[in-house]
Amino acid sequence: MTALPAPAVVAPAAGAKPKAASGPRAAGTASEARTRAAALVPDESLLVGPLNGYHHETYAFPLPADDGSGAQTWWKCRYPRAGLLRFDLRRFASEEALLGALQGRVTRIPVLVERRGISLYSFIEGRTLGEVCPLGTPLSRRHLNQLGGLFRELTSVDVDETGFAGSAGAGGLSAGREDDPAAFLTRLIGFTEYHVYRRHLPRYGSLFAELGVHGAALDRLRREAARLTPRPFTLVHGDLHRENFIVDADGDLWTIDWELAMVGDPLYDLATHLHLMGYPQKESERVTGLWCEAVESARPGASAGWERDLPVLLKYKQVQSVYTDVIRTALAPGQGQGQGRGPGPRLPARAPGRIREVLAAAAIPLELARVPTSRQVRTAYENWFMSQAPTTTSPATAP
Rank of each mutant, 00 (worst) to 15 (best):
R370G: 11
K19L: 15
Q103M: 10
L98W: 01
P7C: 03
V287G: 02
G264D: 10
R203A: 09
V263L: 11
E307A: 14
G15I: 03
M262F: 05
R127K: 11
A82F: 04
T58R: 01
G334E: 15
L47D: 02
P300H: 11
G251A: 10
A65C: 13
Y194L: 14
T272K: 12
T229Y: 03
G353A: 04
V159R: 14
A71D: 14
P18W: 06
F151E: 04
L4T: 09
Y316K: 04
E44A: 15
A82R: 09
A20S: 12
P399K: 13
E259Q: 13
S45D: 15
L173Y: 11
D88F: 07
G190D: 14
D265E: 04
L235Q: 06
L310C: 00
P5L: 10
M262W: 04
G15F: 02
V106H: 01
E243Y: 12
G28C: 06
P181T: 11
P311M: 14
L185N: 05
A97Q: 09
T397Y: 06
R34T: 03
D269Y: 01
A71K: 12
A39W: 00
A217I: 11
P395I: 13
L221N: 00
F87G: 10
L235W: 03
G205P: 00
A8W: 10
H200V: 02
T155C: 14
A38S: 10
A8Q: 13
G289K: 08
L185P: 00
H237D: 12
V312A: 09
D43I: 01
R346F: 12
L144W: 06
L147M: 11
R350Y: 11
E178N: 10
Q281V: 14
A302E: 01
L147T: 07
L267I: 05
P333I: 11
Q281R: 13
Y121N: 07
A175H: 05
A38V: 02
Y268T: 07
A97E: 08
A13H: 06
A175P: 03
R199E: 15
S156A: 15
L173M: 09
Y316R: 05
A14Y: 09
T255A: 12
K282C: 07
G289S: 12
L270I: 02
R231H: 03
P202N: 08
A360M: 08
A183D: 04
G126H: 05
D248V: 12
A27D: 05
A363N: 00
G190V: 07
G163C: 05
R86G: 12
F233D: 02
V322W: 03
T2I: 13
P348M: 01
A225N: 02
W254E: 02
F164C: 03
L98A: 08
A37D: 01
M1L: 11
A225W: 02
Y381G: 03
F151Y: 13
L260A: 10
L270P: 00
F385Q: 04
D66Y: 08
L218I: 08
D269N: 08
E161F: 09
F208K: 10
E357H: 13
L40W: 06
W306M: 06
Q146P: 07
G104L: 10
